[in-house]
Amino acid sequence: MKGILGKKVGMTQIYGQNGEIIPVTVIEAGPCFITQIKTKERDGYDAIQVGFEEVKPKRLTKPELGHLQKADAPNLRHLREFALDEGETFELGQRLDASVFEVGDTVDVVGTSKGKGFAGAIKRHHFQRQRKTHGQSDRERAPGSLGAGTTPGRTFKGKRMAGRMGGERVTVQNLKIVLVDRERNMLAIKGAVPGAKDGLVMICQAVKAN
């Protein structure tokens, strides 16, 4: 499976072939290094561990440095795994850059969504707002009933209510790659991508591509 790690830079618009405007997210993708190869025999599954973003050695712990040294990789801040398909081979320490993808590829992008803080049921679970008039007061954004009465006599676990929202792993599927620039390690992906600017994103080959 093709994949790379990157950093969200921001969004802009570019002009397509027929002069149409395409909204794109610009991602600084790579250079990444393969830091470990997991095999079925040793680890129970096949995957590659990929590292991204070079930092000063003092930003990492000694165990981290030792792990990276084994792969002869630079000091990398982020490590993530990509599952391998049958028959794919990679080398330890191999460098990956934006050119693993081509223009027109469909990809899934994984990121950490922006934290929304303590959010009500309307924003968090797309509940409907109640009516603003007809003698109502203070109920506009209330969640409504939490369940039946004496039977069952309790609120079920997992009942959707207000609470912390965002800051969790989100995947957006089937986005198109619009631009690939190997020199500048740049990818432009059509549409929005989860997370804040400067956030880490994982870009993988689309699971449901057709």
Binding site: V9, G10, T12, I14, Y15, V26, E28, R184, M186
Partner: peptide, 16 residues
């Protein structure tokens, strides 16, 4: 310069 700014500058160069 930020990659977004670079990209926008190129578009301006190309079409402007």
């Amino acid at each position: 310069a930020n990659l977004v700014q670079m990209l926008e500058a190129e578009q301006k160069e190309k079409f402007g």
